[in-house]
Amino acid sequence: MKCGILIIGSLLWDDKTEGRKDWRDHRLDVSKAVPVLVPIDYGRISSSRSNTFTMVLRSDGPPGTGLLVPCRREVVTIDDLVAEASALWKAEAPKAKRGVIGSTWGSVGVLFREGASSAGFAESWRAHFKKMGTKSLAVVGSDGSLNIPWPVTEDGASADFDLVLATATVPENVKPSPEAVARAMLCQADGHENYFLNNVLNGIRTAADDEIFTIIERGSPDWISTDEYRDAIAILKAAQSFAK
């Protein structure tokens, strides 16, 4: 079966966190990543990023654009699926023990395309999820399934994968407003605006990006005019012009 990893943040572009680049190079075919529409937003405060917001998956809401990245190996057995899930979590949480697929703040979940679970994969995955003691949270159910719509491409076609793996993190109790997301970036001085801007540069977008950027522009932070972010800012400005 063709397995894809749904990526909505730094797993795609972060080369500094231990193991992430190696995971992408050896387990994924990033060159064949497919932009897909899924409900996402900046919904979780990250203490390690100076209390700026990182991306979360939602079960519903305005669609944003994530990337569905094919795994290099096909999933033939439940052991193959477990291996991909474990490697995904290790990339997400480098200090986690090998084989673990979740924690109190996040978890790996699986979305099976209709018909793909007929070989007993869903049942086997459910048994493994419970055996590992992984708890349901956010959009991951007690059976380890992702409670999100099946990803569709930008032209509305169903994404051509048999199953999708993703990490879901626990969002804030109250969904942050675009202004709160923008203000969090404006109120820090440690370079953590890079999460938002690297997402934009790599095609990971939310429905609120234009509003977030408008508020940031109004705040005129020093970093908005740096060469480091020139391309990402150009993308955001172009989107603003198109919207007008």
Rank of each mutant, 00 (worst) to 15 (best):
I45A: 09
S46P: 01
S46Y: 03
S47Q: 12
S48N: 07
S48E: 07
R49Q: 07
S50H: 10
S50T: 06
N51H: 15
T52W: 07
F53A: 05
F53K: 04
F53E: 04
F53L: 02
T54S: 05
T54W: 03
M55Y: 05
V56F: 02
L57S: 07
S59N: 13
S59L: 05
S59K: 14
D60M: 07
G61Y: 00
P62W: 01
P62V: 07
P62C: 15
P63H: 12
G64W: 01
G66Q: 03
G66E: 04
L67M: 12
L68V: 07
P70N: 10
C71W: 02
C71D: 00
R72Y: 02
R72G: 00
R73V: 06
E74S: 12
E74W: 08
E74N: 10
E74A: 08
V75W: 03
V75T: 15
V76S: 11
T77M: 11
I78C: 13
I78A: 14
I78D: 02
D79Q: 09
D80P: 00
D80Y: 00
D80A: 03
L81I: 04
A83D: 13
A85C: 09
A85L: 06
S86G: 11
A87M: 04
W89G: 14
W89E: 05
W89Y: 11
E92K: 08
A93Q: 07
P94V: 00
P94C: 02
P94G: 10
K95G: 05
A96Y: 05
K97Q: 11
K97A: 13
V100A: 09
I101P: 13
S103A: 14
W105V: 12
G106A: 05
S107W: 06
S107C: 08
V108L: 08
G109I: 00
V110F: 03
V110A: 06
L111T: 02
L111N: 04
F112R: 01
F112D: 03
R113N: 05
E114A: 15
S117Y: 09
S117G: 10
A119K: 10
G120V: 04
G120S: 05
G120W: 08
E123N: 14
S124Y: 00
S124G: 09
W125L: 07
W125Y: 06
A127V: 02
F129M: 07
F129I: 01
K130Y: 01
K130R: 11
K131P: 03
K131Q: 15
G133E: 05
T134H: 11
T134S: 14
S136F: 08
S136Y: 07
S136V: 00
L137Y: 03
L137G: 13
A138I: 04
V139I: 11
V140S: 11
V140T: 03
S142G: 15
D143C: 05
D143Y: 01
D143Q: 09
G144N: 06
S145M: 12
S145G: 14
S145A: 15
L146N: 10
I148F: 11
I148W: 05
I148V: 14
P149V: 06
P151C: 10
V152Q: 09
T153H: 08
E154D: 13
A157C: 08
A157F: 03
A157E: 15
S158V: 14
F161L: 15
F161R: 14
D162S: 12
V164W: 01
L165A: 14
A166K: 08
